[in-house]
Amino acid sequence: MSDADAKTTNQPDLMEKMHELRDAYMDTWSKYLVEEVKSESYAQASGTALKNFLNATAPFKEPAEQAMLRTLQQLNIPTSADFAGLAGRVTNIEMQLDNMDAKLDRIEKLLTAAQPARTAEAAIPAKSVSQPAPVKQTSRKPAEARAVVQEPVARKNRSKPAVRGSAIARATAVKAAGRKSRKGTK
């Protein structure tokens, strides 16, 4: 075997050995650090670091926000609070539209279901028209019943500004719970 051949065959081996060594080293470090981050002392250290950061940053937040608010108001520019309020109102409108969409879907479904019955009615000879063809409401009942069951939920949602109004939702829930308990005591 020539020197050149020996070099080319030895080189990958050397690289492979280096890779193996590196991987073994990484593996050791990995295991050590995984155990380390699991420890109580790490949790404590990271908690202290976060606490220090919060203590250093929080005091500046309020004055900075107030100063910004005053500046924006003087310049007659909407503040982030204005935008947040606007976003909440847009979301409420979206929910109202979604409720309307749900109602329209239900109406469309009812009309589609009623269509074949009407067609059948029109096809019956004049003599028997006086006896109205039974519109097969029973066949639609499961879906309809479910839609009716869902409606109060949707109606309730309509009055709830769900996104910005979690507090209202909570209040409603508390009220409902109160009503329930009152009923229970009666």
Partner: peptide
């Protein structure tokens, strides 16, 4: 503006 969003929503 969405900071109040909860699992409830």
């Amino acid at each position: 503006e969405d900071k109040h969003l909860k699992f409830d929503d």
